[in-house]
């Protein structure tokens, strides 16, 4: 996963995650090493329980490793406190959920604007950025619609716009097409690949779908918490 042209943006060393489930110790990740260059589109694949979502969550800073280290853009996030991680996530990560997780009481525009409000960006700057990303995802004509008034594909586009609006270093997507029909899924994946390419974003996507993984630059296969195969395209 290294090339000589781009710097490493995600670096995991001996990454282990374990937790108790009743009396049993579950280890979704075990001594995992990973380096990912800036601007790459990585697909994480593997069976259920292989640790791919755990790895994604650790990269996104919403979960922490039991041991090992994870460095993102030369910042070791595994040592950050919960509040430091929250601030860091707001600026550095754009998260795209399988079930979109849009705020139902806010319009598409307001949903996209929300991360900027949290970061106390000025009103004019917010407006400029929100309109820009809504245009990028092709939803400028749906900005005053509430999530319930949008289709699944449109909701996911709003979620992508929300993830992009803070101009994060990394976009992480957890099964972004898992809840969509085939046509919508194809549109979303094309959009992700195009955005990654045009905006030079690093994208990490978890998927079960081989077809979805084919949109990525490279695919990692995990099994029982270990990296078993990588397949660059």
């Amino acid at each position: 996963m290294k090339s000589q042209s781009s710097p490493i943006i995600i670096s995991c060393r001996n990454l282990t995650k374990s937790y108790y489930k009743g009396d049993t110790v579950v280890t979704p990740l075990e001594n995992l090493d990973l380096d990912l260059e800036k601007g790459r589109f990585l697909a994480l694949m593997g069976p259920s329980g292989s640790g791919k979502t755990t790895l994604l969550n650790i990269i996104a800073g919403i979960d922490s490793p039991t041991s090992g280290s994870i460095t993102i853009n030369n910042q070791e996030i595994s040592r950050m406190s919960r509040s430091q991680l929250t601030r860091w996530r707001g600026k550095s990560i754009g998260y795209i959920f399988q079930l979109y997780h849009l705020i139902p009481v806010l319009t598409a525009y307001e949903n996209v604007e929300l991360p900027l409000l949290i970061q106390k960006i000025s009103r004019s700057e917010r407006e400029k950025r929100v309109l820009n990303v809504l245009e990028l995802v092709g939803l400028e004509d749906r900005m005053s619609h509430f999530p319930r008034q949008l289709s699944g594909g449109q909701e996911q586009r709003v979620a992508i716009a929300r993830a992009l609006v803070t101009d994060p270093m990394i976009l992480v997507a957890d099964e972004p097409t898992g809840d969509l029909d085939a046509a919508s899924a194809q549109n979303i994946l094309s959009l992700l690949r195009q955005l990654g390419h045009d905006l030079h974003k690093t994208i990490v996507m978890v998927t079960h779908d081989v077809k979805a993984a084919s949109y990525a630059d490279l695919t990692l296969h995990l099994e029982k918490g270990k990296l078993i195969e990588s397949s660059p395209l």
Binding site: A60, T86, R87, R89, G90, Y95, F97, I103, L114, Q119
Partner: peptide, 16 residues
């Protein structure tokens, strides 16, 4: 609960 978790993911603090 999930909505609040999602808000935390996008950078909203628990205090907020």
């Amino acid at each position: 609960r999930r909505e609040m978790a999602a808000l935390q993911v996008i950078g909203c603090s628990r205090v907020a």
